[in-house]
Amino acid sequence: MQVTLENSAIIALILLTGLSAGLCFTWSNSITPGIARLDDAGFLTSFQQMNRAILNPIFFIVFFGPFFLGLINLYLFRNTSSTLIWLLLLAIGVYFLGVVLVTIFGNVPLNDLLDGTDLTKSSTEDLKSLRELFEVKWNRLHLARTLTSFISFLLLILSLMQSLKSNI
């Protein structure tokens, strides 16, 4: 494989998307099932602190990077086969709809609701109600992110294979 701007860009896109898919998988596979075992106060406090901690520059690069790098890849590969363009479009679209938009319009409002609650001043009944409002909906939305980030990652691997096939 020849080192070109296009090859470097698609590999970077695959890596960022893979990191995002891995992050989603880790949350789905271990973090949320683990904290689900906690009582209401422990669950909500843990989730509140994790949501605050994840908002950092590295997360934002991994989270938004695939979309913007995907657009750059579309530009770089604009003169290649239509199969490659369609694979890239599909991968970027799936990621944008299933990860970015679901997060912005689904998970973030729930995170904001949780973050705006002073858990130390909440009654046991309030904590139970908040958890019931938050947990199932957040996990359902997160499952969508996990699946779509994985699908996008897989489509990008197929894109790389198509790109390499075109260069032979």
Rank of each mutant, 00 (worst) to 15 (best):
V3S: 09
A9R: 02
A12V: 12
L13W: 06
I14W: 04
T17R: 02
G18F: 07
S20E: 10
A21D: 09
L23M: 13
T26C: 09
S28E: 09
N29S: 14
N29E: 11
S30D: 04
I31F: 14
I35A: 00
I35M: 13
L38H: 01
D39E: 15
D39S: 07
D39K: 14
D40G: 01
A41V: 06
G42T: 04
F43Y: 15
L44V: 12
T45V: 13
T45S: 14
T45G: 05
T45P: 06
M50G: 03
N51W: 00
R52S: 14
A53K: 14
I54D: 05
L55N: 08
L55C: 03
N56V: 05
N56S: 11
N56K: 10
I58L: 14
F59K: 13
F60S: 05
F60Y: 12
V62L: 09
L69A: 06
G70N: 12
L71I: 15
I72C: 07
Y75M: 12
L76V: 11
F77K: 06
R78W: 10
N79Q: 14
T80W: 00
S82R: 11
L84D: 05
W86E: 09
I92C: 02
G93W: 01
G93H: 01
Y95S: 03
G98R: 01
V100P: 00
V102C: 09
T103L: 07
F105D: 02
G106W: 02
N107T: 05
V108Y: 01
N111F: 03
D112S: 10
L113M: 14
T117Q: 15
L119M: 08
S122R: 10
S122H: 12
T124H: 11
L127N: 07
K128H: 15
S129A: 13
L130S: 06
R131W: 05
F134D: 04
E135T: 04
E135C: 03
K137G: 00
K137T: 12
W138I: 00
N139Q: 14
L141F: 08
L147S: 13
F153C: 06
S166A: 15
S166L: 07
S166Y: 06
N167Q: 15
